[in-house]
Structures are given as C-alpha cells and as structure tokens.
Simulated scan of single mutants.
Amino acid sequence: MKYVLLALLLLGLAMPVAFGQKAIRDDAIRYQQERMVFKQWDRNKFVPEPGFLYLNPMYWLTWGLHPNYPKTDLRPLSPYGPQTQRLGLVLAMQQSSNSYKLHADTLRNTALTETSNYIGAVSGLDPLWMLYYSKEFDPLTGQNDGALLSGLEIKEREYLQSTGLVNWYLEESLAIRERLAALRTANMDRGSRILGYHRILGEYRTLRASWEAKRQRSKLYLSLAETAEKARKPNAQATSAGEQNDKLIADRILSNSKL
C-alpha cells in the first residue's frame, strides 16, 4: 500500500511538468538550419537584427566578434561550397578518366590494326587480297599439272615433253608459288606485302603468257619440221642417184683405159 501511494505521488508531481513543457521556437536556429541545408544564404534573416542605427545590443553581443559571418556563404552546396567543389572535382576526374580511357582505346585499336597489317598469319583476311589478288593467283595456287597439256594433240604433247618445256614451266610455276606462300606467311608491313603481291603477279602473268605462246606455236613448229623433213628427202634421193651416175662414169673410164 505504501508503494502504491508513493507511485501516485510521483505521477502527480510529473504531470504538471509534462503538461507545462512548451515547444521552443528559435528563429535563429531555424534560419541557420534552412541556410545550411537547402535554402538560400539570406543575409536578411540573421537574428538578432542590428536594429535602428545598429544600436541593438543583442546584435553586437551575437555578431560583434565575427561581423563577416552573415556575408560569407557557408552552405556545403553553395556555388563555392565544399560539397560543390567536391562534385566539380568528381566531374573533372570523371572527364579526365574518360579521356584517358578514350586514348587507351584508340591506342589499343591502332595496335590491333597495325598487328593485323603486320602478322602474316592473318594475311588472308586482307581486303585487297580477298577482293583481287586471291582471284588473280587462283590459277597458280590451284594449278593442275595434268591439265597443262589439255586440248593438244598427241604429237604436240610429245613435242612439249621431249623439248623439256613442260618441266620448265612446272619448275618456274613451283618457284613462284613457293615465293607467294613465303610472302603470305612472313611478318612484314602491309604495304610491302601488297607490293610483293604485285611483283609476283607480274612474273606469273609473264610466265603464263610465255607458256600459252609455246602451246600455240607447238603445232606450227611440228608442221615446219615435217615440211623440212620432206624437203630433205628428194635431195637425198638426188644425191644417191648422182653418186650412182658418178660411179658408172668412173667404171666406164677404167674399162676403156684397160683396153
């Protein structure tokens, strides 16, 4: 019973204190919070105010030791505030990082391009090779040695083989094909490789034209050889007949001399 009375007494003493509390509204604190957080740094809202002719003693007691405080914008997000400077520095560092990244990507792409132009392992992907030189060198790289004498007669084939022209063309074309393969697999500048293609293609065209000329002239050579052979046979017969006549005359002279 005694503890219940004590609790009621304490509760009765605390209720007037609780209901007697009043919310404190300090404009100076409120204005400072607004200035520092989100609102404009308003010099006209600094309290206490100077009053008439700056004679307010509370003003001097508050701002007398630091009169420049109302003039200095201390907001973190002010035009020159620390947070604004930090954000500006972050943006500047981001732009600098993007510039470095762009420069690094440019160097990487340039290096990859130069590597692709230099390494012989990827020479088959060169656009000029794919569009032009691969087609021009296709008869050489895909050459069928058995088809070199196609379309010719037996005599013409025998003539080209007996004279060594077939072996000559096979050796020359093999040498050009090996040079082309070495040029495609070698590591060199793309311009040097293209010039090598052009030079080898000129040599191959010259060799091909010479071979086609020999193929076409083989029939002419055979016909001329047959004509010359026929022309030599009557001369041989006439010579043998003349030798026989000379022998008869010599025998007749010898027989007359014996008489």
Rank of each mutant, 00 (worst) to 15 (best):
L102M: 06
E172F: 08
L195R: 12
K2F: 05
N256L: 02
Y54D: 15
N167W: 05
K214F: 05
T227Y: 10
I194K: 03
L53S: 15
K214A: 06
H198W: 08
R190Q: 15
D126L: 04
L201D: 06
F52K: 14
E156Q: 03
G196C: 02
N235D: 12
N68L: 12
A241S: 14
N117I: 08
N187M: 06
A186I: 10
F46L: 01
G191R: 12
D145E: 05
K247T: 10
G88R: 15
W60S: 07
A182R: 11
A28P: 01
A228W: 12
Q216I: 09
T163Q: 14
S240Q: 15
Q33R: 13
R193S: 03
N235P: 00
R177D: 10
Y159W: 04
T106P: 00
L222E: 05
T115Q: 09
V166R: 03
I249V: 09
Q32C: 14
G191I: 09
Y31D: 15
L87N: 09
G151W: 03
Y69A: 09
S255C: 07
A225K: 05
N235T: 05
H198Y: 09
V4C: 08
A209K: 08
Q94Y: 13
A225V: 04
T239R: 07
K258L: 04
Q216S: 12
K39D: 15
N68V: 06
Q161E: 07
R252W: 14
D251W: 00
F38I: 14
G12S: 07
L102Q: 14
L11H: 01
L149D: 00
N117D: 12
G146S: 08
Y69H: 08
T115P: 05
A186S: 15
Q85V: 13
R179L: 13
I253V: 13
H198I: 02
H103K: 15
N256W: 02
M36F: 11
G164M: 00
R252Q: 08
G12Y: 05
N256R: 13
W168I: 08
R252T: 11
Y69T: 13
G202N: 14
R25C: 06
G51L: 06
M58V: 04
D145G: 03
F46Q: 01
L61H: 03
K155H: 06
D251Q: 01
N167C: 04
L195V: 13
Y3F: 03
K135E: 09
N44W: 14
T185Q: 15
Q83R: 15
R199G: 11
N167Q: 08
Q21T: 14
D145Q: 04
R108D: 14
Q95H: 08
P48I: 00
L8C: 10
W211H: 02
T227G: 11
M188F: 05
Q237L: 11
S255G: 02
I119H: 01
Y197I: 06
A92D: 10
L165A: 10
R25I: 12
L53E: 14
A92R: 07
S123E: 07
S257L: 05
A104I: 01
G191S: 10
F137S: 00
S218R: 02
N144K: 06
P48T: 01
D26A: 00
K233A: 14
N44M: 12
T62S: 02
Q33V: 13
E243D: 11
T163D: 03
E158G: 05
L87Q: 03
A182I: 05
S218E: 02
M188N: 09
I194Q: 14
S223H: 04
